[in-house]
């Protein structure tokens, strides 16, 4: 069946239901499909709808077994669809926060939170940053009990850029990377 010069098979598709003809029986237009096939490809028609192959087709699971499988499938399907939808919604509704924190007058650290939602391991990211910026980076739990990655130095722009590219690599380019600033209380009151 292969065309010349290629290893690709050329596959016949039904002109009525678009399925490969052997699957027409599962569509809703079998009568029309058969008419088309008889007209256009008599050899395939004879092969598919001979008595021999029809007898084979009626073998298979008992009705009872099929019904049981069907019930099991429906239950699991509903459960799974729910789970997948929730996970995606969570991802799309989340954001990464890159926070600049003033530790002393000229010393800043950058705190990153929210990356784990997108399948990024905060600890691995800390290691990457530590070597990338030749600085200290560690993971601690923040006030909400979530992982927070703290990098020494005023490297907010670089961090944002890197996290954004990481998200893009994962096909998550619509995710927001939010920049915030956290100054000591004393200062903000001045």
């Amino acid at each position: 069946m292969a065309e010349e010069g290629t290893k690709a098979l050329s596959v016949l598709y039904c002109g009525v239901c678009t399925f490969p003809p052997e699957y027409c029986e599962f569509g809703g237009t079998l009568t029309k499909c058969k008419e088309w096939l008889k007209e256009e490809h008599l050899d395939v028609f004879n092969e598919l709808y001979s008595e021999d192959s029809l007898a084979k087709a009626t073998e298979g699971l008992s009705l009872e077994a099929q019904e049981k499988v069907e019930r099991e499938i429906q239950k699991l399907q509903a459960k799974e669809a729910n789970k997948a939808e929730k996970e995606l919604k969570k991802k799309l509704a989340s954001k990464v926060v890159v926070k600049r924190v003033e530790r002393s007058k000229r010393k800043h650290v950058i705190a990153v939170s929210g990356v784990e939602v997108f399948g990024i391991d905060p600890k691995k990211l800390a290691k990457t940053f530590a070597s990338k910026f030749a600085t200290g980076a560690s993971v601690t739990k923040n006030a909400e009990g979530k992982d927070e990655l703290v990098i020494q130095g005023d490297v907010g722009d670089e961090v944002e850029e890197y996290v954004t590219s990481l998200l893009e690599e994962k096909g998550l380019d619509g995710i927001k990377v939010e920049r915030t600033e956290d100054k000591p209380k004393k200062k903000s009151q001045q």
Binding site: Y23, F26, E59, G60, L61, A65, E70, I73
Partner: peptide
């Protein structure tokens, strides 16, 4: 897969 599974898959 067995024949019985076809219609579920489709």
């Amino acid at each position: 897969v067995d024949r019985g599974a076809i219609k579920f898959i489709l």
